[in-house]
Design a protein around this nucleic acid. Sequence first.
DNA 1: ACGCATTTGTTCGTATGTATT
DNA 2: TAATACATACGAACAAATGCG
Lengths: 251, 251
Amino acid sequence: MPAVPDAPLFSPLYRQIAALITRSLQASEWKPGEAIPSELDLAARYKVSQGTVRKAIDDLAAGNLLVRRQGKGTYVSTHAEEQTQFRFLRLAPDSAPGAPKAGEREPLSRRFLDCRRQRAPADVARAIGLRGGEAALQVRRLLYFRGQAVVLDDIWLSAGLFKGLTSTRLSAYQGPMYGLFETEFGVRMVRATEQIRAVVADATAASLLELAPGAPLLSVERVAYTYDDRPVELRRGLYDTRTHHYRNELG
Amino acid sequence: MPAVPDAPLFSPLYRQIAALITRSLQASEWKPGEAIPSELDLAARYKVSQGTVRKAIDDLAAGNLLVRRQGKGTYVSTHAEEQTQFRFLRLAPDSAPGAPKAGEREPLSRRFLDCRRQRAPADVARAIGLRGGEAALQVRRLLYFRGQAVVLDDIWLSAGLFKGLTSTRLSAYQGPMYGLFETEFGVRMVRATEQIRAVVADATAASLLELAPGAPLLSVERVAYTYDDRPVELRRGLYDTRTHHYRNELG
DNA sequence: ACGCATTTGTTCGTATGTATT
DNA sequence: TAATACATACGAACAAATGCG
């Protein structure tokens, strides 16, 4: 009987190929938005059949690392472009008579409150794997839907990975924040987990989101991971859910 | 140029097979928890290759309609058994020193407050597709973790589909509610969507969940669908998130 | 304890269809 | 139209997991 019950002693070929492709992604051999080599090319490169490469790519596409486009090629997923926004943001406007039509997404704007080097509290440091005393960046920002502030984000990043990130630079970049991280810092967010709670607005949140202190808010605490499952961002969001809601699909 | 941009004019063979299998599931030819015929049997039945059946099953397994088990067979998904609970419930205890070990799930108990025939409000009727004036059932219940009430659910069902459902019957059934629906009423929940908001406790909720009126609560509004994407349940849950949180994974 | 049959999982190969440029 | 890329479909062989005799 093995000491570890569920330790795979080997892995099938297509998983090994998937791992090799992931390593190339991590090493930026192919950058977000670019096409990777064709299945036949990869099959030749790794000396396996096209079918095996196909299954490896299927896995990576299922994990949203790659996107297949028939007739064109297979592309590295990106947060930039991404139809001007969204991928991890699950907040949607409540359906209402005067609301946006089906399929369309509501325009979104942002305002950065500050971005400063800051000592990370112990829980934050633990969450994003900062080794003792390593510096952190704290970013605070507001998101607006139709001119109304709806989200207040408090974001923590490793200062080492995002050297030179400033409020100015954040404001200048058009498009989603994770797009900036990709193109400017080579850090790609691949997956995230969120913990959601109901809380009450403190004085700061109330004033920034223009609601009464003590009003209920959705607290969304996100840890975002990059390729090797390494946590690189902790984000604490407060969502005003009077006219919007967090949408989730259960399979 | 086609009038409808994304209308598939045909569907590949494996999708047609998947549709046929889904119809058999819907017709209860194979019941939840049971095994469906082997890939080779299905291939013979539909006069296609094993690979085509395999791809059809892959699709259905990805949608959680079926579960594959190597060496044994392919099984119809079920909410019964399901390691004594859970599948759609995303509430988890905050990790704490004295908390349950990794992998284990906290034991859960329930108490049904009532189950009565009730005229459904217009919005409820619309959500679960009740045709004008059709009768509805309203169920209210509490969920307890470690003896503490944490969830108050207000559930609406079509009375026609769940003829004979009573509080007694609900209490008598051990295991998840959707398991009862499956085995006793032949209604299988396949997927669901949830809208999450932060609200404040009214007097009723406060008293039942043992917290102060005005305390923040997570409002989770779920619409659950059966095979043909027909909505059959509307569930409004209020979650106390002082010691638990709603957990979500972003891909 | 062993081997065997069954079932899904992996891998290869080949041919053809569909989408894009 | 032609070339290229992914998508579908078939067939075959062997591996791994399971359960039974």
